[in-house]
Simulated assay, not measured.
Amino acid sequence: MLSTNTRKTIAAFVAGAFILAGIASPLVAQATSFSKERPAHHQRHHQVNPEQAAKRLAADFGLDEALIAKYQKEGKHFKDLRRAAFFAKVSDQSFESVLALKTDKNTWKEVATTLGIDKGKAKAVRQELAAKHIAEKFSINQGDIQTLFNQGYHHRDVAMAGLLAKQSGQAIDEIMAKKKVNNTWQDVGSELGIDLKALKKDMRKSWKNKNTKE
């Protein structure tokens, strides 16, 4: 089985870089499941580079980067901007109108209820974003990644297949076919001649350096 550290490393790649400016898949999943916000002292805090965050949101959701920057200067928290962008895309509403629904007296779960967010569409949007980021990270055709999602593969497995595809030069579907119920990704790596332990170490170092710079 994969070690805890390996799982954490893979998870860092899963939403394909929700991995930029502190954007991480658990936070998007949190918005998708409409869970209530945790008390501040239970939340993990990330150092978010405002410019990087604005660029990422603009690219992911087709928003005006200057508009995002304006809200940042007004003191809007990045998590609220991200959730507003996500809900706007899922509900086909404008980013500004969705953001206006969130006040100090309600939660994002209540906003989701007001918007009538469809969980099936939310899942589809999350997969679309994950496919886009994995494609960018590992230089793989986004359609091939989406196909694997449609076949029911988990984001973590698709991300791992993408990583090994990039390292080996093989197609991602060929890599995925090597993963069986009775083997591990370490086994697949060994079959491909890839030392996952060394790769894991390099990824952790790269991820740590990236976070430090941002």
Rank of each mutant, 00 (worst) to 15 (best):
residue 106 N to E: 06
residue 85 A to P: 08
residue 153 Y to I: 07
residue 17 A to I: 06
residue 160 M to Y: 04
residue 90 V to R: 00
residue 163 L to Y: 01
residue 47 Q to P: 04
residue 185 W to C: 00
residue 67 L to N: 10
residue 59 A to V: 03
residue 158 V to F: 01
residue 65 E to Q: 15
residue 188 V to K: 00
residue 101 L to K: 13
residue 130 A to R: 10
residue 65 E to R: 15
residue 10 I to C: 04
residue 149 F to D: 06
residue 25 S to Q: 12
residue 25 S to P: 03
residue 190 S to P: 00
residue 181 V to R: 14
residue 122 A to G: 12
residue 114 T to Y: 08
residue 91 S to R: 07
residue 101 L to A: 06
residue 203 M to R: 14
residue 60 D to P: 03
residue 152 G to R: 00
residue 61 F to N: 07
residue 178 K to Q: 10
residue 85 A to I: 11
residue 157 D to K: 05
residue 81 L to R: 09
residue 52 Q to L: 14
residue 107 T to K: 02
residue 141 N to H: 09
residue 168 S to N: 01
residue 214 E to G: 00
residue 13 F to S: 09
residue 9 T to S: 11
residue 93 Q to E: 07
residue 162 G to K: 02
residue 133 H to A: 15
residue 212 T to E: 14
residue 68 I to N: 06
residue 114 T to L: 13
residue 75 G to E: 13
residue 177 A to N: 02
residue 58 A to M: 06
residue 169 G to L: 06
residue 86 F to G: 09
residue 86 F to K: 10
residue 175 I to L: 04
residue 109 K to P: 04
residue 27 L to S: 09
residue 99 L to P: 01
residue 93 Q to T: 01
residue 211 N to K: 14
residue 69 A to N: 13
residue 20 L to T: 13
residue 124 A to K: 10
residue 214 E to T: 00
residue 49 N to L: 04
residue 85 A to M: 08
residue 94 S to H: 07
residue 157 D to G: 05
residue 69 A to Q: 15
residue 18 F to Q: 12
residue 11 A to M: 09
residue 187 D to N: 07
residue 126 R to T: 13
residue 133 H to D: 12
residue 203 M to L: 15
residue 78 F to C: 00
residue 79 K to D: 15
residue 209 N to L: 04
residue 51 E to L: 05
residue 43 Q to C: 11
residue 60 D to A: 12
residue 210 K to G: 07
residue 192 L to E: 00
residue 66 A to P: 03
residue 62 G to M: 06
residue 83 R to L: 07
residue 31 A to Q: 05
residue 8 K to G: 09
residue 107 T to H: 08
residue 75 G to Q: 12
residue 137 K to Y: 05
residue 132 K to Q: 12
residue 119 K to P: 03
residue 42 H to Y: 14
residue 115 L to S: 06
residue 32 T to C: 13
residue 149 F to W: 08
residue 92 D to N: 15
residue 126 R to H: 13
residue 126 R to L: 15
residue 171 A to K: 11
residue 45 H to S: 10
